[in-house]
Design a protein around this nucleic acid. Structure first.
Lengths: 153, 153
DNA sequence: AACTGAAAGGTCAGGAAAGGTCAAAGCCGT
DNA sequence: ACGGCTTTGACCTTTCCTGACCTTTCAGTT
């Protein structure tokens, strides 16, 4: 994990952990100076790591006194678990989005790394035997089934 | 066993043995240089020797600072369980046989009644959407995935 | 109220640095 | 000679990082 984007990401996540209400506010230019990079690098990190997919919302404001606010969304089900999972995963899902979701669950402490790796292995294994055009659907079914099984209670 | 792929395989396995958390991280290009071969040779070794079937998961990242991470599953589909499950379930299974299997697992005290009814419900739900001719296959995948997930460790 | 300049953040394209793919050639045992 | 692993190399995709240029907001001036 040697690249700059990763460092910035983990710095921001550390800040978020220590923050009230799972929300932080900062300035792009300042942060860029701190990491000695161009400001657009910060935008890059936000755009690739703090996406809704991964459970974050970013609000910004330009101009004097501008800021960037990062809000962490909690996966904690407000409704019932099944419909939340249904909404997140749907009938089909790419391998990438599946990874992102598992990572997010790990990030939130809902599953551990072993769970994540295991589920990934199962998905890879079951998925590669079948015809490519059904993969996305089977992947979704498997993911939903396993996540529900692990998260229920 | 004099071929390059075998040497690379055993080198990686040696690294894995000495690694904390049964996980190593390396760069494809570097490793290729070390063995004086083309990078795709590394991919070949990973694709043929470090498969989920054999108890490994490989995660990679491209681009600057890219890496390859090899994780050994702690629940290495312990011959017993994995092959038992594979043998019992196979590539396809009817709803009836699935029920029977779940009941048997409950009988043997390997899962409780809650697990069983939950898994059944998940299978029914995921299975009803899809085309009838694929149900048996998807049912098998789901069942295998969930049973392994619950029985692992 | 309108104008203007400075101070944010946004966008986008391009180059460099990984790893991925796939088909063809090579090698080896039967 | 054949079939199945191995190896190689040409070409592709993804990710990171930077820099040039754009837009928005605010504060002060006219």
């Amino acid at each position: 994990m040697g690249n700059l984007a990763d460092y910035i990401e983990s710095y921001l996540k550390r800040l978020l952990k220590g923050a009230e209400q799972g929300m932080i506010e900062l300035q792009r230019r300042e942060l860029a100076e701190m990491f000695r990079c161009v400001p657009s690098q910060i935008s890059y990190v936000l755009g690739t790591r703090f996406t809704p997919d991964r459970g974050y919302v970013v609000e910004t404001r330009r101009g004097g006194g501008g800021y960037i606010r990062i809000v962490r969304l909690s996966f904690r089900p407000s409704q019932d678990l099944a419909s939340l999972i249904e909404a997140e995963i749907g009938d089909e899902i790419t391998g990438r989005r599946a990874d992102a979701l598992l990572l997010r669950l790990e990030d939130e402490g809902l599953i551990d790394e072993g769970d994540r790796t295991f589920m990934r292995a199962v998905i890879d294994r079951e998925t590669e035997r079948i015809h490519p055009s059904y993969r996305a659907a089977v992947r979704a079914s498997l993911l939903k089934a396993m996540v529900m099984l692990v998260l229920r209670d």
